[in-house]
Write a protein that binds this DNA or RNA. Structure first.
Lengths: 160, 160
DNA sequence: TATTGTTATACTCTATAACTATA
DNA sequence: TATAGTTATAGAGTATAACAATA
């Protein structure tokens, strides 16, 4: 079954996939622990706040869709963030069914603080690597981002 | 603030950290969706089975510690896997307080099946990248694995 | 009638505390 | 008394279904 023309690259893909299966959860754990520890917040909450920082005024339905949660789930999540005064929830003047969500200044500050803490923690781990490796890793991560970003989708560090 | 000797590399670390924050959750979602979709299983369940495939006979306490869950949580998780006939739970002959955990043949087959499906799904995403990039990405992932693997810790694709 | 959001309910995953059996 | 594991209970986080308000 490896005779087909398209299969010549499969071992390389397999190797890459196996490495991703191994490395990605390791790094995800660091990120999750930092979000929890610094802000007592789940990853989806953090992603939602990141999205709102880029798209203030987003309605609940749009946010739920972008983050990949149902509206009831997002509604409850926003309840909690509003209670913590990290997010504002305001009826739209043009369509009173809609609510426009945005970060409070405290929410934005917390978001930036968490991002900074994650960056510091990840950098600590990266310090063992030589300069030349970091250059290559940066390029590789940029290519992985292209490969895994669907049109309309966003990442944790940027939009959601 | 960029004049300090030690700071010359900081932007590179920052850039790398920001990319990780963005890329890692994207890939994690693909992996999680595949585990859920193929095996109706959570990521920790999948990791536990991966660990048992490498360390059959592990007691509950050891598994809980390696996966990073409490014993009650692991006990309930194993309940479910035993009910599904993916894991066996057998009292130790030398110390009857302990139970020795292992995969059933069905459990091992499911584990391998899920790994294959994840690999296929990740490979699909990687197909857009040129051969040369894959080589560099493989090298980069290997270095990231080194940087993020603590002694005794394991990855999803290998041990846990 | 369709859309936006909330409430009701339930299930999974997780934890801490209390308990049982064994050492 | 100490250890391995389970049971009891509780709190997030998620979903589907039913509901309310608005268009």
């Amino acid at each position: 079954m490896k005779q087909l023309e398209n299969d010549t690259n499969l071992p390389r893909y397999d190797r890459c996939a196996a490495l991703l299966m191994e490395v990605v959860p390791l790094i995800m754990r660091v990120i999750r622990a930092e979000i929890r520890g610094v802000a007592e917040m789940s990853v989806p909450q953090f992603r939602a706040m990141g999205f709102l920082s880029r798209h203030p005024g987003t309605p609940l339905s749009g946010l739920a869709e972008h983050i990949g949660l149902t509206m009831p789930t997002m509604s409850k999540m926003i309840d909690g963030l509003v209670d913590r005064q990290l997010v504002t929830r305001q009826s739209s003047s043009s369509d009173r069914r809609r609510i426009e969500l945005a970060l409070t200044p405290e929410g934005l500050a917390l978001l930036e603080s968490v991002r900074g803490h994650i960056s510091v923690r990840l950098s600590e781990k990266l310090r063992s690597l030589p300069e030349q490796s970091l250059i290559a890793i940066n390029r590789s991560l940029g290519e992985l981002r292209s490969a895994f970003t669907l049109p309309g989708e966003v990442g944790i560090g940027t939009e959601g």
